[in-house]
Design a protein around this nucleic acid. Structure first.
Lengths: 126, 126
DNA sequence: CTGTATCCTTTGGGATACTG
DNA sequence: CAGTATCCCAAAGGATACAG
């Protein structure tokens, strides 16, 4: 039998390694705007402007920037209709939907521990 | 019967509302350093310096800053031993452990879709 | 409507030094 | 060792204007 490889394949890339691609993906995706976009999109197909009003407080720039990032990683699909004015629709891909489960988990977590956290926060600030 | 309240209680605070406390919590916690700290801590109890070497690439400043934030929200417990030199230990609380489940989910997600994402990324960049 | 680019302000974040 | 504070640069991010 072969001993377990110490240097993993790309598939095993350790998230802890600051320079790894896995870490890059993790770091880019684990930010509030990406999460709020994924959550706002859900299983729907939304236009840029619809998505923007869905994600409260996001600026035009942040929305495009994060949409590009998510598209680059293949988490969303971008469909352009060559009409005038242009119509662009966004929808989560399968990897995007899978990520959505994680984000949903965090939303649930926030709701569930809202009381705990609020109390801890008040205690700490005192 | 009563109709469903349109203005929810704090417990129902909508994450989507940019100004809400729930959104503040979500936005602060959903960042790479917080996630990596939670993941690095796991179910262990680590000292500041141990945690720092666990979370590769984090600076002294970012570590303290995020630890304060997590402590403020009651996600980690900070224990100070009045020795010299001082010894400070960090461990996840129950809400912190619950969050860890979410973070673990995202780590799994990253490993699972690493191939998809890498391929999409190359396609996009071409 | 969507997207890019520019400008400008704010914040993030590293390095260093200093205190308990 | 752990924490705070300072300095300073780079990146985030908002506002605006413009192009397709």
């Amino acid at each position: 039998m072969v001993t377990k490889q110490l240097t993993g394949s790309p598939e095993d890339a350790d998230l802890a390694r600051a320079g790894s691609l896995a870490r890059e993906i993790f770091s880019n995706v684990a930010n509030k705007w990406a999460f709020l976009i994924v959550e706002g999109l859900g299983d729907r197909t939304l236009r840029f402007s619809e998505l923007r009003s869905e994600v409260e407080g996001i600026s035009h720039k942040m929305l495009t920037q994060n949409l590009r990032m998510l598209e680059r990683y293949g988490l969303i699909e971008r469909t352009v209709y060559a009409t005038v004015p242009p119509r662009v629709e966004y929808t989560l891909t399968e990897p995007g939907q899978a990520l959505r489960a994680t984000v949903d988990g965090m939303c649930g977590w926030t709701r569930r521990y809202f009381g705990h956290i609020e109390a801890a926060r008040r205690r700490f600030d005192a």
